[in-house]
Design a protein around this nucleic acid. Structure first.
Lengths: 160, 160
DNA sequence: AGTGAAACGACCGTAGA
DNA sequence: TCTACGGTCGTTTCACT
């Protein structure tokens, strides 16, 4: 066997400058043709294709569609800091199943879990927080940070 | 004039079920061919392409490469909550220019700004926090929430 | 907004270095 | 891991609805 499926942290992958350049190209436009990318980074079309395939199959990179919540009418976003008791993994799983929550992370610090919520309006945010988050087992207290302005959002590591 | 550039919130766009289905397809694989997507959603290849073009040109959707920080050796991530004085927009701009920070949002609540940082190790995190974040003008105090486990990360709104 | 068809260009497998 | 190349399939444009 050469490469078994893993549940957790694989060994760190090293990206050379060419792969970083390819990722930069695909970050600007995920549908740019391999031939175009090849011209930009100085490689043949087939070589670019092979590298992209390796990067995606190893899980280092993904090419995906992302949407802008604001433009779709989801105008209320917030980060919820949660102080919990008991097994925080179970709480995180429960939070992850709520569709209005797009981001859940277990943390060390004065919050045990951070969850980002995306809502259409204040009423939806209020009922989400009260009826479906604060009512979950293990939630001791929450603190809400309503988003006023998203300043930066960057998706690519290892390319700087 | 019909459609001038805007700095802030455009009018909410409505997505019909077909466009949502197209976005779902492209979220699973941003390089899936328009012909394949057409088969999946019951539309001709040309129609899919037109809709994708409209979605991307209007800024509602983007197809981009995203990378996994963990697999690239950036094993320390944290959310920094910042209490600030003065103009928080200037602080947010300054934070956005730090390459190790991938996410900055102005918030209402007990923090004025939230910033997500991605580092290779603890030393990098410590020096980033002390030398380059806490030293910025207007930072009164910070609180750090070190990530233990990322449970959920979803990129697409309007498709649920 | 969507379809269909023909010309063009991109993609994929394989061979060879 | 790269280049070269040929067959196949996807994309583009355009006329039509």
């Amino acid at each position: 066997m050469t490469n078994t499926a893993r549940t957790h942290p694989p060994k760190p992958v090293h990206l050379d400058d060419v792969s970083k350049a390819i990722i930069e190209q695909l970050q600007a436009d995920g549908r740019r043709s391999y031939a175009d990318i090849g011209k930009a980074v100085g490689l043949s079309e087939a070589a670019v294709r092979q590298r992209v395939q390796r990067l995606t199959e190893s899980g280092v990179m993904q090419i995906v569609a992302v949407t802008d919540p604001m433009q779709l009418g989801f105008t209320r976003q917030a980060m919820i800091g949660i102080r919990a008791s008991g097994d925080t993994r179970e709480l995180a799983s429960a939070l992850a199943e709520i569709p209005e929550i797009d981001y859940v992370v277990l943390t060390a610090g004065s919050f045990d879990v951070l969850a980002e919520v995306v809502c259409e309006n204040d009423d939806e945010l209020i009922s989400l927080l009260n009826s479906r988050i604060r009512s979950l087992a293990g939630v001791r207290s929450t603190e809400t940070f309503v988003y006023l302005k998203l300043q930066k959002q960057f998706y690519n590591w290892g390319t700087r």
